[in-house]
Simulated assay, not measured.
Amino acid sequence: MRDIVDDLLQVWRSGRTGGLATIVRTGGQVDIPVGTSILVDPDGMIYGTMAATGIEDTVYESTLQSARTGQRALHRLPVPGGEGAVIDVFTEPFSRGHFPEFPTIAAEIAEHRRVTVFTVVWNPEPGMIGQHLITDKRHATELVSLPQSDIFVASFAPPPLLVMFGANTVAAALSAQAQLLGYRVAICDPRPTFAVPESFPGAEVVCDWPHRYLNMLVSEGEIDSSTGIVLASHDPQFEIPLLTVALRLPEIGYIGAVGSLVSSARRLDDLRASGFDDTQLARLHSPAGMDIGAATATETALAVIAELVAVRNGRLGRITVSFPAEAAI
């Protein structure tokens, strides 16, 4: 739902009725996450996608039917070519009257606060189906089966945070790419002439010493296993104090420092001189980024974001392609 929140809010504010469909359970080999939603607006336009499932046309018609009739329903749909795979989809009308709590959900998501929505998708009492309950408690996104109800739990955690130190063209390009992937972005630089918010649309821009800003984020509980840190500058006067703090954090998703092999070697030598051993330094990706032959700031940002995603997903981030001998020319 997160990717169509603005579209849902627009329909809600219009006072008209659309339809909302949500995948609440999957069985077998299905390459789409539980919680994926689509909106069919009052004019029949669709927002979001389930195209990868092969059931989108059926879901669209069922959602349109819910919008027109006001009926809520749980559908079990076979996945074409899925060798027995099935997807359970809950369809419901969507409007002010049908989902009065929605603006609260949208506001919590916009403010990067945790919000969890419980929806009754089956109950022997038809009037109970479609009831919503909102809480700020942490919960897995899943379908919970109780003796007299099936309840779908949709949990929206705050988006992951990417913090970049050094306000330059690499940081600007990386900021844009990270936001496309759903990251909150903060950029910190102690130089007022560089830390200009207008240069980094959508990002929080802070003028402060990097190590001090990182310590502040730690004290506020903003750093966790989903957080990424990227050092986009090569200035030793603030990169070593910053990395000294970052490498001692017990929980963090990614630490990267851009630069050449020469600057990386110098950086590692400085950190070893500060008391870090090879095990600790193995947490640092330096030079940051996959080897794609990056030659521009945008390409460097692409290399870094690709490595960050690979690390987040537990992948090496390297692709080996083998060609048949007869294909070689």
Rank of each mutant, 00 (worst) to 15 (best):
R16G: 06
A257Q: 01
E198F: 00
I151H: 01
F94W: 11
G221S: 11
G70I: 01
Y47T: 03
I229L: 14
D57R: 13
D7M: 13
R138H: 13
R267V: 00
D277S: 08
V24L: 05
F152K: 01
G54M: 03
D31W: 12
Q177F: 15
S226Q: 14
I109E: 04
S322K: 08
L284P: 12
A301Q: 06
A301M: 07
E198M: 04
Y60R: 15
V206D: 08
D291R: 13
T58E: 15
L162H: 02
A106Y: 07
A157E: 14
Q71Y: 13
Q10W: 10
L133R: 13
G289Y: 11
D277W: 09
I129V: 15
M1R: 12
E251D: 15
T169K: 09
V163P: 04
G18T: 05
G19Q: 09
E239F: 01
I187W: 00
A67K: 12
E251W: 12
S62I: 05
L308Q: 11
V59N: 08
L162R: 05
D88K: 07
M1S: 14
P103M: 12
G97Y: 03
A52D: 05
C207H: 02
R25K: 14
A325Q: 10
R138T: 12
F102H: 09
R272P: 02
V311Q: 07
Q29K: 13
W209E: 00
I38H: 04
P236K: 04
E326P: 02
L247N: 07
E326A: 13
F200H: 04
D189K: 05
L249W: 01
